[in-house]
């Protein structure tokens, strides 16, 4: 076997596809030809390399793409397509952000006293929004202030009434009293202490209503 024949049959030799006689001739040639031996080794290495190469995996969606392109099956509905397009957006942080934005907008609209169901051109003016929000803010502050002062008034009344009651319960020092015709000096008809003798009775009466107290307080007659 000459060198050229040996080179041409290296692959078949390595695949054991030659007859026994030719195989033996090849082996005999390899013992004398270093170049052929080296080439056979190289081809063997290539074949081993190809065997070691794992099959590659196509993208998982390739089959779906082909099916769509051929049978037209699995055509997603508009809803599925829409859902598919917004799926990346539906993440917790995005949802949280959207919720906060909606809350903020609704808060601003409420503060600006804008009714979305009956929008007017004036409602679209940011200046109007600012004005209304400002008014509402002031109203809110005024209400809070009024509530605070109302509480204070009630407290004052309660305090004053407590003082009156305390004054009433205190034992009075014995003072000489003029004899009265009925013998019932310092006593009212129902037997209670003479109210006129209670300190400060001239200013406050136990029969004073809350309205009277308020009226007095508004005239600064009560200590503030």
């Amino acid at each position: 076997m000459n060198h050229l024949d040996a080179v041409n049959q290296i692959s078949e030799y390595l695949e054991n596809q030659l007859g026994l006689a030719t195989q033996a001739e090849m082996e005999a040639h390899f013992t004398t030809c270093a170049e052929c031996r080296e080439m056979a080794e190289g081809v063997r290495e290539v074949m081993e390399l190809c065997q070691a190469a794992e099959p590659l995996q196509p993208s998982p969606w390739l089959i779906s793409k082909i099916i769509q392109a051929t049978t037209g099956q699995r055509q997603p509905s508009w809803w599925e397509r829409l859902l598919g397009s917004i799926r990346p957006v539906l993440q917790p942080r995005v949802v949280y952000g959207i919720s906060m934005a909606v809350f903020s907008i609704s808060f601003i609209l409420h503060a600006a006293n804008v009714n979305i169901r009956s929008l007017t051109l004036r409602d679209l003016n940011p200046g109007t929004w600012a004005y209304r929000a400002n008014s509402k803010g002031h109203l809110l502050v005024a209400r809070a202030e009024k509530y605070y002062y109302d509480l204070r008034v009630v407290y004052e009344i309660q305090n004053r009434l407590r003082e009156l009651r305390n004054d009433q319960d205190e034992p009075k020092p014995e003072t000489p009293k003029k004899a009265s015709p009925g013998g019932a000096q310092g006593r009212s008809r129902n037997g209670s202490t003479e109210l006129a003798e209670i300190p400060g009775f001239n200013r406050f009466s136990t029969r004073m209503s809350a309205a009277d107290v308020l009226s007095m307080w508004s005239k600064r007659s009560l200590p503030r």
């Binding site: 041409n8 290296i10 692959s11 078949e12 080439m39 290539v46």
Partner: peptide, 17 residues
């Protein structure tokens, strides 16, 4: 086919080397 495969492998072996 055999010739192409054999020449292809020989060429591949040279390139890889």
């Amino acid at each position: 086919v055999k010739s192409r495969i054999n020449r292809g492998r020989l060429e591949l072996a040279r390139i890889i080397k």
